[in-house]
Computed example of a mutant assay.
Amino acid sequence: MNELMKKAEACLHEQDIVATLRELSEAFKERVAFSTSLSLEDQIITHFIFSHDLPIRVFTLDTGRLFPQTYETLERTRKKYGKTIEVYFPPQEEVERMVNEKGMFSFYESVENRKECCFIRKVLPLNRALKGVACWITGIRAEHSPLRSNMRLIEWDESRQMVKYQPLLHWTTPQVEAFVKEHNIPYNPLFDQGFLSIGCQPCTRAVAPGEDIRAGRWWWEQSHKECGLHAR
């Protein structure tokens, strides 16, 4: 086990997320960051960080194709807590090249095109946001995908050579919903309309009763639906 993992695992309190976040912030100083997509679970983690005034960077990615309601949720969150959520954008030149070569909706045409769009609009700005980070906090939950069911609360991200901590990994959707309601945490109103996993507007639809949580993401594809942010 490498030194970063040893340091991170020494901070873990499985039943006390705030204590773990506080110790991680002390252990890694300015090298710890949380990426939020403004989802329900991410809003909970933001609440933990901001309401306890923890010195952890919070950032989000603006792909340029988000729902208006997502931007509204970002602003309501900033105002409620009086804190900064850093916003990272994709490289202009890459977006222009892709759109000029393949059009505005190339992602519908093939999995390769969709992954290219996700890479440019999500992965590239994430790479910038995570530069210098040693401990990356995420809102991943096991319920989201079979690929995430065998993850651990704290694990090593081999591709990025950093520690990842997913504090809500084992939380259920009812737990998440109840916590948001109990603490009056701002959330995206699209959730109440059946949008259980919200990404870019052209790539997200509402989920029908009985469908998987992420069924509304890239619904025209049949393969495992990941955008590359959490490659394993």
Score class of each variant (00 low, 15 high):
His52Met: 06
Tyr81Cys: 08
Asp16Asn: 09
Arg205Glu: 12
Pro91Phe: 10
Asp62Ile: 13
Leu196Asn: 01
Ala129Glu: 00
Gln166Pro: 03
Tyr108Lys: 08
Val87Glu: 10
Ala129Ile: 05
Met151Leu: 15
Thr138Asp: 06
Phe34Tyr: 15
Gly64Leu: 13
Ala208Leu: 12
Lys29Pro: 00
Leu153Ile: 00
His230Tyr: 15
Thr77Asn: 03
Gly210Val: 08
Gly194Asn: 12
Glu101Tyr: 02
Ala19Asp: 11
Ile154Gln: 00
Leu38Met: 06
Leu229Gln: 11
Leu169Val: 05
Arg214Cys: 02
Trp219Asn: 03
Val95Phe: 07
Phe89Leu: 12
Val176Phe: 02
Val123Lys: 02
Trp171Arg: 14
Glu93Met: 05
Thr20Ile: 07
Glu158Tyr: 05
His170Cys: 02
Glu96Ile: 14
Ser149Leu: 03
Ile45Glu: 11
Glu93Ala: 08
Trp219Asp: 13
Lys83Tyr: 02
Leu54Phe: 05
Met98Lys: 05
Gln201His: 07
Cys118Lys: 11
Leu190Glu: 07
Gly228Met: 13
Met1Tyr: 10
Glu182Thr: 13
Ile85Gln: 15
Asn113Lys: 11
Lys131Trp: 03
Asp62Thr: 10
Asn188Val: 05
Leu24Gly: 02
Gln201Thr: 13
Ile17Ala: 09
Lys79Leu: 15
Thr70Val: 09
Gly64Asp: 06
Val123His: 03
Trp136Ser: 09
Glu177Pro: 01
Tyr88Asn: 10
Asp212His: 14
Glu3Pro: 00
